[in-house]
Simulated assay, not measured.
Amino acid sequence: MKILILCTGNSCRSQMAHGFLQSFDPSLTVRSAGTEASGKLNPKAVEVMKEIGIDISHHTSDSVDLHLGEEWDYVITVCGGANEACPAFTGKVKHRLHMGFDDPSHAAGTGEFIHSEFIRVRDEIKDRFLRFYKDELIRG
């Protein structure tokens, strides 16, 4: 099973989703990519994932162009707000899904508030991708 998770910057939400899916089932082939890949991971995303025992620090922020020639069982977009354009994937895909999440890297305020936003979004991603895993991939 090959799953590609797409976002714009590929530094935060798509990376967390990638980490969760891989933790649910290491036999899955999971990649994440961005239409405007930042080239680096958001350190706060790495931090909040590490807090729950998932290390994504070795992930890379890659351009979607690297994956256009491949076939995918699922391509899942994770961009959220109305002001955010979700990337379109033009490659060979069996199933396209959208699961929108707020971008915690846009949170402003105290360090404590920003950290809580990363935790909130992380937990929303975990819940939604666990449901996807159980409903689509196990029962599929």
Score class of each variant (00 low, 15 high):
residue 1 M to Q: 08
residue 2 K to A: 04
residue 3 I to S: 09
residue 4 L to E: 06
residue 5 I to F: 03
residue 6 L to I: 12
residue 11 S to R: 02
residue 11 S to P: 00
residue 12 C to T: 02
residue 13 R to G: 04
residue 15 Q to W: 04
residue 15 Q to D: 10
residue 16 M to H: 02
residue 16 M to K: 01
residue 17 A to G: 14
residue 18 H to Q: 13
residue 20 F to H: 02
residue 21 L to C: 01
residue 23 S to D: 07
residue 24 F to L: 11
residue 24 F to H: 03
residue 25 D to G: 05
residue 25 D to K: 11
residue 25 D to M: 07
residue 26 P to N: 12
residue 28 L to S: 06
residue 29 T to K: 14
residue 29 T to G: 00
residue 29 T to L: 13
residue 30 V to C: 08
residue 30 V to S: 06
residue 31 R to E: 13
residue 32 S to W: 07
residue 32 S to Q: 04
residue 35 T to I: 15
residue 37 A to F: 03
residue 38 S to G: 01
residue 39 G to N: 05
residue 39 G to T: 06
residue 42 N to R: 04
residue 42 N to D: 15
residue 43 P to K: 10
residue 43 P to W: 06
residue 44 K to D: 15
residue 45 A to G: 10
residue 46 V to R: 04
residue 47 E to I: 00
residue 48 V to I: 11
residue 49 M to G: 06
residue 49 M to L: 11
residue 49 M to A: 08
residue 51 E to H: 01
residue 52 I to H: 05
residue 52 I to C: 09
residue 52 I to V: 15
residue 55 D to P: 01
residue 55 D to I: 06
residue 55 D to R: 03
residue 55 D to A: 03
residue 57 S to E: 06
residue 57 S to W: 01
residue 60 T to F: 01
residue 60 T to C: 03
residue 61 S to A: 14
residue 62 D to P: 00
residue 62 D to V: 09
residue 62 D to S: 07
residue 64 V to S: 05
residue 66 L to C: 03
residue 67 H to R: 01
residue 67 H to T: 00
residue 68 L to C: 03
residue 68 L to E: 10
residue 69 G to C: 02
residue 70 E to T: 03
residue 70 E to L: 08
residue 74 Y to E: 06
residue 75 V to T: 07
residue 77 T to M: 10
residue 78 V to K: 08
residue 78 V to D: 04
residue 79 C to V: 07
residue 79 C to W: 02
residue 79 C to G: 11
residue 80 G to H: 07
residue 81 G to R: 13
residue 82 A to F: 14
residue 82 A to R: 14
residue 82 A to T: 08
residue 82 A to Q: 09
residue 82 A to C: 00
residue 82 A to M: 14
residue 83 N to S: 11
residue 84 E to R: 05
residue 85 A to F: 01
residue 87 P to A: 12
residue 89 F to N: 04
residue 89 F to C: 02
residue 90 T to H: 11
residue 91 G to P: 05
residue 93 V to I: 14
residue 93 V to W: 08
residue 95 H to T: 15
residue 95 H to I: 13
residue 96 R to F: 07
residue 97 L to K: 15
residue 99 M to Q: 11
residue 99 M to F: 15
residue 101 F to K: 11
residue 101 F to S: 09
residue 101 F to D: 03
residue 102 D to A: 15
residue 102 D to L: 13
residue 103 D to H: 12
residue 104 P to A: 13
residue 107 A to F: 05
residue 111 G to D: 15
residue 112 E to A: 13
residue 113 F to T: 12
residue 117 E to Y: 02
residue 117 E to N: 02
residue 118 F to N: 07
residue 118 F to K: 11
residue 118 F to C: 04
residue 119 I to C: 12
residue 121 V to D: 09
residue 122 R to E: 12
residue 122 R to A: 09
residue 126 K to G: 00
residue 129 F to T: 04
residue 130 L to Y: 10
residue 131 R to Q: 10
residue 131 R to A: 08
residue 133 Y to A: 02
residue 133 Y to C: 01
residue 134 K to F: 00
residue 135 D to K: 04
residue 135 D to Y: 00
residue 136 E to Q: 12
residue 136 E to N: 10
residue 136 E to W: 01
residue 136 E to S: 02
residue 138 I to Q: 15
residue 138 I to T: 04
residue 139 R to S: 13
residue 139 R to H: 13
